[in-house]
């Protein structure tokens, strides 16, 4: 696993979400990967609750279905500003992020800032996420968290 692999993965990750290509986002995970978006106060205190907790591609697909078909929310843009990964051992990484949200006709605001805690896996298709916990420092979310961080 090279630094370049991790950077490439994150570039595709942010690009997929910012273009609302949620299937491309899902494809960056291994089929059994766990995705979490978790407030740092829970992470730091060892409390298991996450705002979003998806266990595998099936639940990721269900989250995508709800975003596209059932949830009611004001239209918005999101922009992932993902920093440089710090590789930890062979298959883990920590990567800082800042996600800016622009709800239509209002000023941009920071939706979340924090650190991705990742487990990476080499697959025939390339490096994929075997686990990603998007741990956000701001316990307080400006109203709603629609798209994955």
């Amino acid at each position: 696993m090279s630094l370049l692999d991790a950077i490439e993965l994150n570039a595709r990750y942010g690009d997929a979400l910012d273009r609302f290509d949620l299937l491309a986002w899902k494809a960056l995970f291994t089929p059994n990967a766990v995705y979490r978006a978790q407030a740092r106060e829970n992470f730091d205190r060892g409390l298991p609750l996450a705002a979003i907790y998806l266990d595998g591609h099936g639940m990721m697909a269900d989250r995508i279905m709800t975003i596209e078909k059932t949830l009611v929310f004001a239209p918005r843009f999101v922009r992932h500003l993902i920093g440089l990964p710090k590789l930890v051992g062979n298959s883990s990484a920590r990567t800082p992020f800042c996600i800016v949200q622009t709800v239509t006709t209002t000023l941009p605001e920071i939706l979340a800032t924090g650190c991705y805690h990742d487990t990476l896996a080499a697959t025939p298709e390339g490096v994929r996420l075997a686990a990603r916990n998007a741990v956000y420092d701001n316990a307080l979310i400006p109203n709603s968290l629609v798209y994955p961080l």
Binding site: N42, P48, L49, A51, A139
Partner: peptide, 11 residues
């Protein structure tokens, strides 16, 4: 038992 928190600011 405590499972954790979620917080939001609603305008």
């Amino acid at each position: 038992t405590l499972l954790g928190y979620n917080r939001q600011r609603i305008r």
